[in-house]
Every structure is written in structure tokens, then in C-alpha cells.
């Protein structure tokens, strides 16, 4: 997809988002949902850069999200670091963790990368709950309960000021989306794709697999850590329960619905899945089953997701040649 088209889709998606508070106003429940949409859009997009563009089957995205959230939360609660600074530190910390996890993955092929990264995910929960976590200030099995909200020049962005908080989230999410867009369309993104398609050919043309694969890990875990930290300060409480499979699978569904490797599909996917999931709330206990069935149908009918479907329609309509 061209940069122009990508920018238009992102612009329209975030533009509609920006207008929604004017319609729904101060209804806190709806605003909360919209804010979560914006946060998941970033996580799903980062995951898409990793899997869809770089072709690295990493299952560590939720772990990086939780790491960022806990890092910033602990810094703010235990060490009284001001939230904006703690979010940045959390981003850098998560990027470092991303590189650490990425290093062994460089020598591994597809399914083994999935195992290592999912191992990190699985190991994080006992770490946070156990003695190491408690020593660091994770709050053990209670979690973090008193994370202060983001405070910029004395103005507090908490759920008490939900509309301004929404717009701040929109800005942060949009900034992340634009960073991802420019990276994908730069020669970094080309290097990611080339390494995914044929690593040997790419290396023989002068691309360092080591450098660019670590860069994918650093970049995606940095952004995921930042948005995770942001989530912590917005929500105010954190629990290791986020590492249960619910969040993991819903993020994967967002990515698949949007279209793997079809950025900015994952943003649209996040919006659609959150909206769909909320619309199905009246189904109660049958919601998860219905959602699962819908995903199966969608993946069979639109293997390249919503974005892949639209791209194909567009290219069919364009004169061939």
C-alpha cells in the first residue's frame, strides 16, 4: 500500500474516533471503550509489524505490554517518578527487554521463536506474583492498585476528566500509528519485508539480519511498552491477570480481522473487534462462543482480513497491466 493511502486510512479512522465524543458526550462507559480501542490499536499494530511485516512469530507482545505497564506503575508508586517520565522510562526498559528476548530469537526459526517468546509471556506471571515481583514492588497477587494518573502541568488526565483524557489517548495512539507508518514505508520496512521473504537473498544484497531483526524487537516493544504504561496510568490498577489468554487472543483476533501484514488493518481490526464485542454484550455467556464462531467465518471468508479485502477490491477495479 502506498504511503498516501495508508495516511488517508489512518486519518479517516482517527478522524471518526475524534468526532465520536461529540456524539456520545460524557457517557463514561462509552468513552472508556473508545479509549481501550485506541490502546489496543497500538498493541495490535506493533504485533502486526512483528508478525506481518518482519515475519517473526513472536507471541511476546502482551508480555511487553504488561512489562511496560508494571514498570511505569512501580516507578510512579514506589519511586515517585512523575508519570510522563515514568512512561518514557518504561518504554526504554521494554525496548531493552525486547532486544534481550530478540537476541536468542535471531538464531531460531519460526515455531521456535514462538516458543521462546511465549515462554517469556508464561514466565512473567509467576515472576510478578512471586518474590522477585514483590521485591520490585509489583504488589504480588494483589497487583498495583494506586497508580497515579498522568499529570501534565498540573492537569490530571484521569477518568474524572474523561473527554480530555480521551483526546490525550487519541494523540498518543495516533503518534504511535504514524511512527509505525513511517517505519513501514521507510527502507527499514523494506528491509523487514525482504528478510521475511528471503533472508538469504536479503543478506546477499547487504541487509544485516542481525541489525534489522533486533530493530523490529526494539521498536515494537518500545511502542508496546509506552502504550502499556499509558494504560496503567489511565486505568489506575494493574493485575497479572492481564497475562491470561483473554487479552492475548483478542489482540490476535484484532490483527487477523484487520489483515496480517496489511497495516493499518490492525487499527481497523481493533476498532471493529472492540465494537463487535460490546455490541454482543447482551448475549451474555454466549458472547465468547459467538465471537469465536464469527472469527472462524471471517478468517475463512477473508483470509487477508478487512484490509486485504478492500485492497483486492481496489486492485480488481483498477485497469490491469
Amino acid at each position: 500500500m502506498r504511503l498516501k493511502h495508508m495516511a488517508i486510512i489512518i486519518g479517516v479512522a482517527y478522524g471518526i474516533m475524534a468526532l465520536l465524543p461529540l456524539l456520545v458526550g460524557d457517557i463514561r462507559f462509552l468513552m472508556n471503550i473508545l479509549i481501550m480501542c485506541l490502546i489496543w490499536a497500538v498493541v495490535a499494530s506493533c504485533w502486526d509489524v512483528m508478525m506481518g511485516f518482519a515475519g517473526i512469530f513472536s507471541f511476546g507482545q502482551v508480555a511487553f505490554f504488561v512489562m511496560g505497564a508494571y514498570c511505569s506503575g512501580i516507578l510512579a508508586i514506589e519511586h515517585h517518578v512523575t508519570p510522563v517520565l515514568s512512561i518514557l522510562i518504561a518504554g526504554l526498559f521494554t525496548a531493552g527487554m525486547g532486544v534481550l528476548v530478540g537476541l536468542p530469537c535471531l538464531r531460531l526459526a519460526g515455531p521456535y521463536v514462538a516458543l521462546v517468546t511465549f515462554g517469556v509471556h508464561m514466565a512473567l506471571q509467576p515472576t510478578l506474583r512471586g518474590e522477585i515481583g514483590i521485591a520490585l514492588g509489583s504488589g504480588g497477587s494483589v497487583g498495583l492498585l494506586t497508580i497515579p494518573p498522568i499529570n501534565i502541568f498540573g492537569y490530571s488526565f484521569s477518568s474524572a476528566n474523561i473527554v480530555p483524557t480521551f483526546y490525550l489517548t487519541l494523540l498518543v495512539s495516533l503518534a504511535c500509528a504514524l511512527v509505525i507508518m513511517f517505519v513501514i514505508k521507510s527502507y527499514w520496512g523494506v528491509a523487514f519485508l525482504a528478510l521475511k521473504d528471503s533472508q538469504d537473498f536479503a543478506m546477499s544484497l547487504g541487509i544485516s539480519a542481525f541489525k534489522y531483526k533486533l530493530m523490529v524487537f526494539a521498536l515494537t516493544s518500545f511502542l508496546t511498552g509506552i502504550i502499556g504504561a499509558y494504560y496503567g496510568h489511565f486505568y489506575g490498577v494493574l493485575s497479572f491477570r492481564m497475562l491470561d489468554l483473554d487479552l492475548f487472543s483478542i489482540l490476535m483476533v484484532m490483527m487477523l480481522v484487520g489483515g496480517l501484514g496489511h497495516y493499518p488493518g490492525s487499527i481497523i481490526g481493533a476498532f471493529l473487534v472492540v465494537a463487535g464485542s460490546e455490541l454482543m454484550a447482551p448475549l451474555g455467556a454466549y458472547r465468547a462462543v459467538t465471537m469465536g464462531a464469527l472469527v472462524v467465518i471471517l478468517v475463512l471468508a477473508l483470509p487477508n482480513g478487512v484490509m486485504g479485502f478492500f485492497l483486492k477490491r481496489a486492485s480488481d477495479r483498477a485497469p490491469s497491466g
Partner: peptide
């Protein structure tokens, strides 16, 4: 520079982009 016995390409990239990979990274 080298080529491979089993043809290698970059299916995600256009011809122009694939050739420019060599220029951007290898030259």
C-alpha cells in the same frame, strides 16, 4: 554479489523496490 540456484525473490516487493534493495543496502 551472488545469485541463488533456486530463484529467490521478494514477493512482497515490486521489481523496482526489490532491485533498489540492492542499491540501498549493498552499494
Amino acid at each position: 554479489a551472488r545469485t541463488f540456484q533456486i530463484p529467490q525473490t521478494f514477493p512482497s516487493l515490486t521489481v523496482q523496490k526489490a532491485i533498489s534493495v540492492g542499491s540501498r543496502f549493498g552499494a
